[in-house]
Design a protein around this nucleic acid. Structure first.
Length: 744
DNA sequence: GGGGGAAGGACCA
DNA sequence: TTCCTGGTCCTTCCCCC
């Protein structure tokens, strides 16, 4: 029906009332306001597009479902049953896992420090994005991850307080001190959330005298109070003389007793619930903030439980199988951490909304989803989850990104890129990390996100190293849409594949190392002849320097040249080995060396030379793209002739030794980008005139030709190249060649 | 088939 | 006028053993 259709269209922006404190709202009214504020925006259009993609995914899934036979289903059923009984045998109910979650954390901190906010709807964040809202605001439909300007429409009196992370970090540290008393190995998930395994604590606690379970309630208004720690230590806590109770509906605490000194005191029991109640009590005494908690036999269940009596409440799921099964039955799948909007919708299309449905349809799910996915579903449907808390594993990546108003100017884009690299380099330094993969993330004004990655032969960390890669990735993307500018709203840089993760890997050889004579003792550390910091014009560099450098007026080449592999070279001899003829050239003068290689190379490319183990690189540039190329020496021209490149637009073909291949455009450039570059080009390898004068396309063609032609000649050694070479970009399969200029 | 890189996404706080 | 940031893991596609 029309209505159903409309509803489907409206869905992407609809209020997500999955969060606590959002029950019984006037959803229709709220959704209407959200719609009115979003409709027609680029953001909304992109959401619609994404929604369409999900719908298509569902359609494909339903089609697949229609083709499932009875036989397949019963086979899957058998598999599921086998797996189920295996899992059942391994069910571990022995641990007591707690998930603690501070209530509306950022908002609560701000309210604590500014009591005027107490009974006002407020949120923490900015006009463009909110991090949290308090429970007053939630009544209006204002929630985390909602832009402030929309929240303001839902609730005109909303007070928006800017975030103050340093403050939250400080409070979080206090809270964590309490956590540590119950589980020194607790697992923080964020500033306001953590998992604890209190099994050991409970074991000890059973033998504790009452004194250790007695905690004083401070009720004074003087500004500080003494709180007795269960270890008998005294700690001084700042209190601001305000009611610690931020939520009116706080469940009342157990009756307070008077201690000898007349102060109010509370005694906690020895069971899990009492221990957790005590922990929450202590958090509140210490910070004036409330927390909610869930107690269950595993992490997955504990997480669901902590939400059950939010705010300022707790819920325990007993450690017996039946209780777990009962608990899971009617639980909506969306409540499980890891099942988000999309998965919920996919499952919904199959009629699955609760965890019991999930169990009933497992055979079907096993056929429609990947193994990892349906295993995950099976665990959920059985109420299984992690029973031991993994202490934080090694970090996998580090990134930094920034959103800004539309940016189209190249200078700005490159300088922002550099800034991001600087920030990231700083962060990397703090943790002494180096990574091999650098990823550039771009989001255009239409909210379309792109990531472009490049993996180097060795780990990098400095600004220059990062920027050398990021800038090339960026340039490639810019070239891709040129002559239009990239209209960006976000840029980010990420580093991954950290060296520490797989230190064991043998050192990979880069070209610079390769150039040097084989070492008998690779530890001898004399430095390489200047080739790590000379300019691109005179050196074996990553590539002739890109337009980006010229645009940003960067002193050319410093970065690309030296930083590609900062740890190399590791040799120290006075001669260099020619990668073409393998003869030692008795010089460290690159000019001399280059000349030698030039001669060798002309032979190879002409097919007169059966040299092996050569990594060639190629770069073909049109004179128009790079302004005032200085590389028009006679030598170059003669090489161009040698290679039989013909183009009236006078492209230069430059041949030299490889360096790690630079990135290439991933997407086919728009056809219209052809016409402003001059006439068609002839491939120097296959000699055929290409129906393009787009250098990107042409370049790709030549790459392919070279793969076939040259590699063929080079024979088996091509494989050596591949393994020691950085991986080529996805669109360009096969070894990545690049011509780099050699001049004197 | 499996491993690994690249690109894109889902999901989380 | 304004729809974040920083992380992990998964999936899909591809290439290369």
């Amino acid at each position: 029906t029309e209505e159903a259709k409309a509803k489907n269209i409206l869905l992407p922006m609809a209020l997500n009332d999955n969060k606590a404190g959002m029950e019984g709202l006037n959803r229709d009214k709220i959704n209407k306001i959200i719609m009115e504020s979003s409709k027609g925006s680029r953001f909304y259009e992109n959401e619609l597009k994404k929604e369409q993609q999900v719908n298509q995914r569902i359609e494909r899934m339903m089609l697949q479902k229609a083709h499932i036979t009875e036989q397949q289903l019963s086979k899957a059923q058998a598999q599921v049953e086998k797996m189920t009984s295996d899992l059942e045998r391994g069910r571990d109910l022995s641990r007591v896992i707690v998930h603690v979650d501070m209530d509306a954390f950022y908002a609560a901190v701000e309210t604590r420090d500014c009591p005027d906010l107490m009974d006002k709807p407020m949120a923490v964040g900015s006009m463009s994005m909110l991090s949290t809202s308090n429970y007053h605001a939630r009544k209006f439909g204002v929630r985390a991850a909602m832009p402030g300007f929309i929240a303001k429409k839902l609730c005109p009196n909303l007070v928006i307080v800017p975030t103050n992370f340093d403050k939250y970090r400080a409070v979080s540290a206090e809270v964590r001190e309490v956590f540590a008393d119950y589980d020194p190995h607790f697992l923080p998930m964020s500033l306001d959330e953590a998992y604890l395994d209190i099994s050991d604590h409970l074991e000890q606690r059973r033998g504790w005298p009452e004194a250790l379970r007695t905690h004083r309630l401070h009720t004074n208004n003087t500004g500080t109070a003494r709180v007795e720690d269960h270890g008998g230590l005294q700690e001084t806590v700042e209190v601001e003389g305000l009611s610690p109770v931020l939520f009116e509906n706080s469940p009342s605490s157990s009756p307070c007793l008077q201690d000898a000194a007349g102060g109010e005191v509370e005694v906690f029991g020895t069971c899990a619930e009492e221990a957790v109640r005590e922990m929450r009590f202590r958090i509140e005494q210490k910070t004036s903030l409330t927390a909610s908690a869930g107690i269950a036999p595993n992490m997955m269940l504990a997480k669901v439980c902590s939400d059950k009596n939010k705010p300022n409440g707790q819920y325990r799921l007993p450690s017996n199988r039946q209780a777990v099964i009962d608990f899971i039955q009617d639980l909506p799948v969306r409540k499980i951490s890891g099942i988000g909007k999309v998965t919920e919708k996919m499952l919904g299309a199959l009629g699955i909304t609760s965890c019991s449905h999930l169990g009933q349809e497992m055979a079907l799910l096993a056929l429609l989803f990947s193994e990892t996915s349906w295993h995950h579903f099976l665990h959920i449907s059985m109420g299984l989850g992690s029973t031991h808390i993994e202490r934080d594993g090694e970090r996998k990546s580090m990134s930094t990104e920034r959103t800004f108003g539309e940016m189209g100017a190249l200078e700005e884009q490159f300088s922002l890129c550099k800034e991001l690299c600087q920030d990231l380099a700083q962060d990397l330094q703090k943790e002494a990390l180096k990574g091999k993969t650098v990823t550039l993330k771009l989001k255009n004004v239409n909210f379309e996100v792109k990531t472009r990655a490049w993996t180097l032969p060795c780990a990098v960390a400095t600004t220059e190293e990062l920027f050398a890669v990021a800038k090339d990735l960026l340039k490639t993307e810019i070239d891709n849409v040129s002559p239009q500018p990239l209209r960006l709203r976000l840029m980010g840089v990420r580093v991954s594949s950290f060296a520490s993760a797989d230190d064991k890997k043998p050192l990979q050889k880069s070209i610079v190392g390769f150039l040097h004579k084989k070492q008998t003792d690779s530890r001898t550390q004399t430095h390489t002849p200047k080739n790590t910091n000379t300019s691109a014009e005179t050196d074996i560099s990553m590539s002739a320097l890109t337009a980006s450098d010229k645009m940003t007026h960067e002193p050319s080449a410093h970065a690309s040249t030296s930083s590609y592999c900062s740890t190399e070279p590791e040799s120290g001899t006075d001669s260099l080995t020619c990668p073409v003829c393998f003869r030692e050239v008795n010089t460290t003068e690159l000019t001399v060396f280059n000349r030698h290689i030039d001669q060798c190379l002309s032979g190879v490319t002409m097919g007169q030379n059966n040299h092996t183990d050569t990594e060639l690189e190629r770069e073909i540039t049109g004179g128009k793209r790079e302004e005032g190329p200085k590389e028009k020496g006679s030598k170059l021209l003669s090489r161009a002739n040698t290679l039989k490149v013909s183009s009236q637009s006078d492209p230069h073909v430059r041949v030299c030794l490889l360096s790690p291949g630079g990135p290439r455009p991933m997407t086919t450039p728009k056809p219209e980008s052809r016409d402003h570059r001059g006439p068609a080009l002839t491939c120097p390898v296959c000699q055929e005139t290409q129906d393009t004068n787009d250098l990107t396309l042409f370049n790709r063609h030549v790459d392919l030709c070279l793969n076939q032609e040259v590699l063929h000649e080079l024979g088996g050694l091509a494989s050596v190249d591949r393994t020691t070479h950085t991986a080529p970009p996805a669109a360009h399969k096969g070894p990545c060649f690049r011509y780099v200029l050699f001049t004197e």
